[in-house]
């Protein structure tokens, strides 16, 4: 299965990845707060991910890694 991995500690919740995701499967995790004080990014449906890696390329803080599996 394709996989997006988040380095949550680096996420600043800017939501640029949410805007560009073609499958619209990214959302801020409002249950969590990271050490910087932001709700970090999370994936709502990993099985829908196509590993296009647009989210990772757009992310200014290199939070996202993408694996095709």
């Amino acid at each position: 299965m394709n996989k997006v991995i988040f380095n949550e500690a680096f996420c600043k919740g800017c939501q640029l990845c949410i805007d560009v995701c073609p499958k619209k499967i990214l959302a801020l995790d409002t249950e969590k707060v990271n050490a910087k004080g932001y709700n970090p990014i999370s994936c709502t449906d990993m099985s829908a991910c196509t590993a296009c890696s647009i989210c990772a390329r757009v992310c200014p803080d290199s939070v996202i890694s993408v694996e095709r599996g």
């Binding site: 500690a9 939501q15 200014p60 803080d61 996202i64 993408v66 694996e67």
Partner: peptide, 20 residues
């Protein structure tokens, strides 16, 4: 297969820039 990961051209220091 790793499609995309943080470049080794950057250090592990978090950027001090504002969100986005």
């Amino acid at each position: 297969n790793i499609v995309y990961e943080k470049s080794r051209g950057l250090t592990d220091t978090p950027f001090t820039y504002c969100p986005g």
